[in-house]
């Protein structure tokens, strides 16, 4: 549980287009790391390389290495399917499976991993995961209802419950609150604080206050212009990034001069 990630000289491509150039950074276990930057700077693209979801898009590939506790995720004998079972992901828009009930949604990933489990174990895991996602009290009476019957914020917490039910080592969140109202956003942010005691969390966000509230480390990505690759400008303690960043571009961005 909760592994560290070291990225060394990673280049991310869509076909021949270099989308993100030469990123090296380290993510500590049991911490929250935020990626911030203007739209199109490649922070989401980079996030998706950490669980090999990037290569799902035809023609997409990477150069360089991503080490999880020392193992290169892009080694030729590493199975991307196995990587994704260790590195969970929550998406920008809540995406519970519409044909599955709330309980089935939570167990969807678990059933892939170890086929059948007893009914009692399943129920326990559903409760444990939903409690972990702060959703249990709201849905415990309607576990057999479709996941799409919930509100947007509840759906997103259902997706988090689904992700943590597999007990991943790392949890990636790609702008998890951008489609949610402030109350739901607060619920998710509280949840992130609780989850970091067990998981390594990486969150992409457009909301700088959110990054300041939830993360210990912040990485700022930027892009020089359309068609140019995105780059990691700097990464430091969140308090440092928001009070005394060492790069001029970071200061301009966080003080609202662009982006």
């Amino acid at each position: 549980m909760a592994k560290r990630i070291d990225v060394n000289n990673l280049n991310v491509y869509y076909g021949s287009f270099l989308a993100v150039e030469d990123v090296s950074l380290s993510i500590e276990p049991k911490s929250v790391t935020a990626f911030i930057g203007p739209s199109g700077c490649g922070k989401s693209t980079f996030l998706r390389t950490l669980n090999r979801m990037h290569e799902v898009i035809p023609g997409a590939r990477v150069e360089g290495e991503v080490l999880m506790d020392g193992t290169n995720l892009y080694d030729s004998n590493v199975d991307p399917v196995a990587v994704r079972r260790h590195v969970g992901m929550v998406f920008q828009r809540p995406n519970p499976f519409p044909t599955m009930s709330i309980a089935e949604n939570v167990l969807a990933g678990v059933k892939l991993n170890n086929g059948r489990m007893s009914k009692g174990d399943g129920e326990d895991l559903v409760e444990q995961s939903l409690r972990g996602a702060n959703l249990w009290d709201e849905v415990k009476d309607r576990l057999d209802k479709p996941g799409s019957s919930l509100s947007g914020g509840q759906q997103q917490r259902l997706c988090i419950a689904r992700a943590i039910a597999i007990k991943p080592d790392v949890l990636l969140m790609d702008e998890p609150c951008s489609a949610l109202d402030p109350i739901s956003t607060l619920a998710i942010e509280d949840l992130i604080q609780e989850l970091k005691t067990d998981y390594t969390i990486v969150i992409v966000t457009h909301n700088m206050q959110q990054a300041a509230r939830v993360s210990e480390k912040t990485a700022f990505f930027n892009i020089a212009g359309t068609g140019k690759p995105g780059k990691l400008i700097e990464m430091d303690d969140t308090t440092t990034i928001f009070s005394a960043p060492s790069e001029r571009a970071t200061e301009d961005y966080i003080s609202g001069r662009f982006g």
């Binding site: 669980n51 519409p98 892939l112 991993n113």
Partner: peptide
């Protein structure tokens, strides 16, 4: 969205088809 949800939790392509494509 649904296909990626399945893939991101470690579904193989066939499992993704069973979870996302067929029900839809």
């Amino acid at each position: 969205l649904h296909e990626e949800a399945a893939l991101a939790m470690g579904a193989t392509r066939w499992e993704m088809i069973r979870m996302a494509v067929f029900p839809f």
